[in-house]
Amino acid sequence: MIRIRIENMTCDGCACGVAATLREAAPDAAVEVSLEQREARVEAPDAAPLLAALQDDGWEAKEVP
């Protein structure tokens, strides 16, 4: 499970946008987004394409160890 912190996710619309970006980057992955924690969890083998897609869409994203 990959955990990604998204600092600039501040509302439900943001959470929907983050989820859409992640689902586009990894269509077969399970995606969970928590606005309260400003975090996404993705069942995927590699964080790099997820982080790149989020950053391309303007999200301040970093992997949580």
Score class of each variant (00 low, 15 high):
Trp59Leu: 11
Met9Pro: 02
Asp56Ile: 11
Ala25Met: 13
Trp59Asn: 07
Val33Asp: 01
Ala25Arg: 02
Glu7Ser: 11
Thr10Trp: 11
Asp57Tyr: 02
Gly13Cys: 12
Asp28Cys: 04
Leu35Phe: 04
Val33Ser: 03
Glu36His: 06
Asp28Phe: 00
Leu50Phe: 05
Ile2Asn: 05
Gly58Trp: 07
Asp12Glu: 14
Ser34Lys: 09
Pro49Leu: 14
Leu22Glu: 04
Lys62Arg: 09
Ala40Asp: 02
Ala30Ser: 12
Pro65Lys: 07
Ala25Phe: 11
Asn8Phe: 15
Arg23Ala: 06
Glu43Arg: 15
Asp56Met: 12
Pro27Lys: 05
Gln55Met: 05
Cys16Phe: 07
Val33Pro: 00
Asp56His: 11
Met1Ile: 08
Glu39Tyr: 11
Arg23Phe: 01
Glu63Tyr: 08
Lys62Asn: 01
Thr10Glu: 12
Cys16Lys: 08
Asp12Met: 13
Ala53Asn: 05
Val31Gly: 05
Glu63Lys: 13
Met1Trp: 13
Pro65Met: 02
Arg5Ala: 13
Pro27Tyr: 07
Ala61Trp: 03
Pro49His: 08
Arg3Trp: 10
Ala48Thr: 10
Leu22Pro: 01
Pro49Ile: 09
Asn8Gln: 14
Gly58Asp: 00
Cys16Thr: 06
Glu60Val: 12
Thr21Asn: 03
Leu50Cys: 07
Ala53Ser: 13
Ile2Met: 10
Cys14Glu: 07
Asp57Ala: 14
Met1Cys: 10
Arg23Asn: 07
Ser34Thr: 15
Ala44Arg: 03
Glu39Asn: 13
Pro65Leu: 09
Pro27Phe: 08
Ala53Trp: 06
Pro49Asp: 11
Pro27Ala: 08
Arg3Lys: 15
Gly17Cys: 08
Lys62Trp: 00
Leu51Met: 06
Ile4Ala: 08
Ile4Cys: 05
Cys16Arg: 09
Ala20Asp: 15
Arg5His: 14
Met1Ala: 02
Ala44Gln: 01
Cys14Gly: 02
Ile6His: 03
Gln55Thr: 10
Ala40Glu: 02
Glu60Ile: 10
Thr10Ser: 11
Gln37Asp: 15
Cys14Asp: 11
Gly58Cys: 05
Gly13Ile: 07
Glu60Ser: 09
Ala30Asn: 04
Cys11His: 11
Leu54Met: 09
Ala15Trp: 00
Pro45His: 04
Gln55Glu: 14
